[in-house]
Nucleic acid binder design. Sequence first.
DNA 1: GAATCTTATTGGATCGCGTCCAACAATACG
DNA 2: CGTATTGTTGGACGCGATCCAATAAGATTC
Lengths: 197, 197
Amino acid sequence: MEPISRVGRPKASSRETLADAACELFLEQGYEETSVADITRRAGVSRSSFFNYFSSKSDVLWSGLDDRIDHALVELAALGAGADGPAVRAVLAGLVRGFAPDPLALALRNASAMGLEAELLRDSGVRHAKIAGGVAAAARAAGVEPVPAEILGSACAAAVLSSIRTWAEEGAGQASLETRFDRALRCIHDLPWSDRV
Amino acid sequence: MEPISRVGRPKASSRETLADAACELFLEQGYEETSVADITRRAGVSRSSFFNYFSSKSDVLWSGLDDRIDHALVELAALGAGADGPAVRAVLAGLVRGFAPDPLALALRNASAMGLEAELLRDSGVRHAKIAGGVAAAARAAGVEPVPAEILGSACAAAVLSSIRTWAEEGAGQASLETRFDRALRCIHDLPWSDRV
DNA sequence: GAATCTTATTGGATCGCGTCCAACAATACG
DNA sequence: CGTATTGTTGGACGCGATCCAATAAGATTC
């Protein structure tokens, strides 16, 4: 991935060290109650260093998924006018494929223990919006009207995020994330109340 | 609405005074660049007073819609097991009915001038999640499985928010908000790619 | 091995949001 | 005129986040 540069001062710490320290503390004393200074103290680095590795406290939880989302957004944009259903489906499937247990999965599973409900509501809304926006743009590029495009985007984003959430909540057990996502996507064209809402 | 208390010190300022000052400044110099202190300076009150009227800076923009959303959530919860399509539709229609031009509408129309893109993405995500969560809970109460319920909720939330957004962006002209919302809701059971995604 | 280049780490200053609280002001009521 | 009630104010505080200059630790070059 990274063309590890062999020049300059070597990194003394790592994202992982910081993420581990952060997750420990989130579990021990809650997310809100853990300051960035707490995290860096435990990791044995300075507070400044934290922001060399993460752009914010919540980034510890979300950077893994964010990378995947950003990658998917690029692919969606590249679809151009050829953004039909299967193409979009393939991009989104790639988004979830191989998504490993991660600080985010830990946070989703222990949301109440971490006192994360509010924070997760807020942050997952941002990711929902990013995915939905990307899909909506792809749909518009393929000729769909703006409002239905947004609704479709939003439904797809919900499929992605809610499959991740249920997968994380139930541990690694049961169905794989990709299977869940497939099932979720199928729900879109089989919505309840479709004939009535 | 309010049982105006005739006892104790009368209010020296008002929400409206503060909201007006805030909107002026947001337009003049942008949202990020406007501090709470700036707002209260212009309104002629102390910084502390701001938080007697609004719970946060962004609350200036969102409190009007938030009240409506909270009201709708209560109604949705009250539906219980009888939450069928038309009932939910009626609640959501009530959410948008008579939604007047408002700091939020101003912000949506002048988002780029206010440098609000990022903030709106973030904040509208929260409202999307609230609406989607409420509709999903109602759907689950009516026997819908969790994942399709979330997707349905998300689609409904997108219908609400995207109709508000397009309505605000095009000024008060063209179609009324309620008409827009009706059209948006209809998109849900006529999604493009329905046979393919 | 010394100078130099590149990159990482660090501490400290600074800012803004949001919370909290005690002091104070203005009104109604008895 | 006291007193209760409600609103306003200033100040202190903690936290997240940004910025920057000083410093450290290697690699590279000569």
